[in-house]
Amino acid sequence: MIEAAMIWNEPNNKSHWDPLLDPDWSRFARMARLAGEAIHAENGSLTRVLGGMSPIDPGFIRRMQDQGALTAMDAVAVHGFPLDWNLWSIHEWPEKLREIEAATALPVWVSEVGVSSFGAEEVQDWGLARTAALLKGRAPRIHWYSLYDLPRAWEATTRHREAEGSSYYRHFAMGLLREDGTPKPALETFGRHTPEFGLCQWFHYQDHRLDEAVRWMQRLGVRHLRTGLSWADSFRPDALAWFDRQMDALRDFDVTVTFCFTPEHRGIEPHHTSPPLVPEEFAEFCGAMVRRYA
């Protein structure tokens, strides 16, 4: 069921890792290496993927190489949203991949790519078709972000929230389905690009959308799914029961499971972006999840 384990999410983005607490990413590199080693010790056949970069930065990959993190990885990953957040054109996708391929011998995955419907649903539909033309056959894995819009009652995982202006609100319009579950025009276009295109869909703790999401993914012909198991959530009541239910529901897909989010009480600072006080604890979490589900 699990084909790959991804270590963290966007580690070079301050919405997911605090650079003030780890300005040279040495803490992150050590944590990632320990986690990769723990995953391999439990299941040597799993592909270990360094958390997708956002922004796409060959300098970050070289830093991870120099600090020893890539010795425990089998692939690296990138995230790109040129029509919403990145300061480059959608037509530069091949060039962006070449930049990372020049910095490492490891395969380069596209573990998140997407277009919001914030301005117009027609823009999302065009962006999906153009992305497919540029990326299909170009990377071992391509995960479109995402199946569902983020519910407006929830918060997007980003540092500055409403201070980001329209950039913040674009987080809520990335789905192929609206919050109420009705399809946008891009849904039909996406279905023409499976199974080459997979999906990235995060499921929150006790997410009410899980079963319906499975039905949509089966209907669309999705084979590869990227999702997450949160280290922070593992301290919630009945966390393992939720993890079991989530992973059982996804048993028919080839899953890339992302391990991330520091529990507040185990961070240098009480925040999910903080480096952990004891990086071995994150590695132990990764190993335990692999032992349970892979």
Rank of each mutant, 00 (worst) to 15 (best):
residue 11 P to W: 07
residue 15 S to P: 01
residue 15 S to D: 13
residue 19 P to R: 09
residue 34 L to Q: 02
residue 58 P to H: 10
residue 63 R to N: 04
residue 66 D to C: 02
residue 73 M to F: 15
residue 75 A to M: 07
residue 90 I to H: 10
residue 98 R to T: 10
residue 99 E to R: 13
residue 102 A to F: 07
residue 103 A to T: 00
residue 109 W to E: 02
residue 117 S to E: 01
residue 119 G to I: 03
residue 122 E to N: 13
residue 123 V to G: 04
residue 125 D to E: 15
residue 126 W to L: 11
residue 131 T to R: 09
residue 135 L to H: 06
residue 141 R to H: 09
residue 152 R to E: 07
residue 155 E to Q: 14
residue 158 T to G: 10
residue 171 H to V: 05
residue 173 A to N: 04
residue 173 A to P: 03
residue 175 G to H: 05
residue 177 L to F: 03
residue 178 R to H: 09
residue 178 R to K: 07
residue 182 T to Q: 08
residue 187 L to I: 08
residue 192 R to C: 10
residue 195 P to G: 01
residue 213 A to L: 02
residue 217 M to W: 09
residue 222 V to K: 00
residue 225 L to Q: 01
residue 225 L to N: 06
residue 234 S to Y: 07
residue 234 S to Q: 01
residue 239 A to P: 02
residue 240 L to D: 14
residue 243 F to K: 02
residue 243 F to R: 04
residue 245 R to S: 04
residue 246 Q to H: 05
residue 248 D to W: 11
residue 249 A to D: 04
residue 253 F to T: 02
residue 257 V to L: 11
residue 263 P to D: 12
residue 269 E to Q: 15
residue 276 P to I: 14
residue 277 L to S: 00
residue 281 E to T: 14
residue 290 V to S: 02
residue 291 R to S: 10
residue 291 R to A: 14
